[in-house]
């Protein structure tokens, strides 16, 4: 049976696509699935550093597409999991360097061998984006609770529909419980109302993400990270399990903590 081909996209840059790909890929590998992650952001290679694999790259996606090497040779095996691979983006070329036909050939070959092909889509809605969404059969849209990011996500939903991906899944990233409590950040319900697509997961803003990127170790492997927990839930849902959504509540402030102590709750 052919593997699932899932594109992770957002429209707006900097909302956490690459982090999401790294964590979902790693999480599926943890569950013994055979996974390949494709960095389709040609010219702005990032997934390799987030995964801590930047020193192992010899060939890249363009080499594989142009048959300079065999596809197998361009795949980088993960440090931690034998069943997790990365097809890195080329750093020296631009997004027009790969054609849709080449992209299709690569993905066809990969999905025959892997359970999951996860594509890290470039920001924007140009050629590279078009290639990435055209070869996928499922999509995950990542957004932040900010007006600009949500607007772009809405546009992406429309563009995915044009490619016959009618049920994209939403990942709502970087929620700040304190700001939501103060009414200064849109909450899950607000964004759900506006975008009206299936919610795959909510991820609290978490400093551990920056620390994990510094180290090149996905946060999903860190059991002290709230974001890591959120990603484990997301992976379970991708695998068809029904997991309740994490509650995004602010930690009690100083008075709340004092009250808790007094009341013994």
């Amino acid at each position: 049976m052919a593997g699932r081909v899932i594109v992770v996209t957002s429209g707006k840059g900097g909302v956490g696509k690459t982090t999401t790909v790294a964590n979902i890929g790693t999480g599926l590998a943890l569950r013994k699935k055979k996974v390949v992650m494709i960095d389709a952001d040609i010219g702005l290679r990032n997934l390799d550093v987030v995964m801590g694999l930047e020193n192992r790259i010899v060939f890249d996606i363009i080499d594989a597409a142009e048959k300079v090497c065999r596809l197998r040779q361009a795949l980088i095996k993960d440090k931690r999991f034998d069943n997790l691979f990365l097809l890195p983006a080329a750093q020296t070329r631009n997004k027009d360097a790969i054609s849709l036909k080449q992209m299709k050939e690569l993905v066809d070959e990969l999905k025959a061998e892997f359970d999951y092909v996860i594509i890290d889509c470039p920001a924007g809605i140009e050629h590279g984006f078009d290639n990435a969404i055209s070869v996928a059969t499922e999509a995950i849209i990542v957004t932040n609770p900010e007006v600009s990011a949500v607007r772009d996500a809405d546009r992406i939903i429309g563009l995915l529909q044009a490619k016959e991906i009618y049920e994209p899944m939403l990942v709502l990233n970087r929620l700040r419980p304190d700001m939501i409590k103060n009414g200064d950040m849109m909450d899950v319900d607000d964004i759900n109302d506006i975008l009206a697509i299936n919610l795959l997961g909510i991820i609290p803003d978490d400093e551990e993400i920056i620390i994990s990127t510094n180290k090149g170790e996905p946060a999903i492997l860190n059991h002290h990270s709230k974001a890591g927990e959120a990603f484990r839930n997301i992976v379970a849902r991708i695998e068809g399990e029904s997991v309740p959504f994490m509650s995004i509540n602010a930690e009690p402030g100083i008075f709340g903590r004092f009250w808790k102590m007094l009341s013994g709750k």
Binding site: E146, V147, V150, R151, D154, I180, N182, G183, D184, M185, M186, D187, D190, I194
Partner: peptide, 15 residues
């Protein structure tokens, strides 16, 4: 009013 209601309102219109 809390700024999130402005965000929701502005998004609704722009979309």
């Amino acid at each position: 009013p809390p700024s999130k209601s402005q965000a929701v309102e502005r998004l609704r219109l722009v979309l």
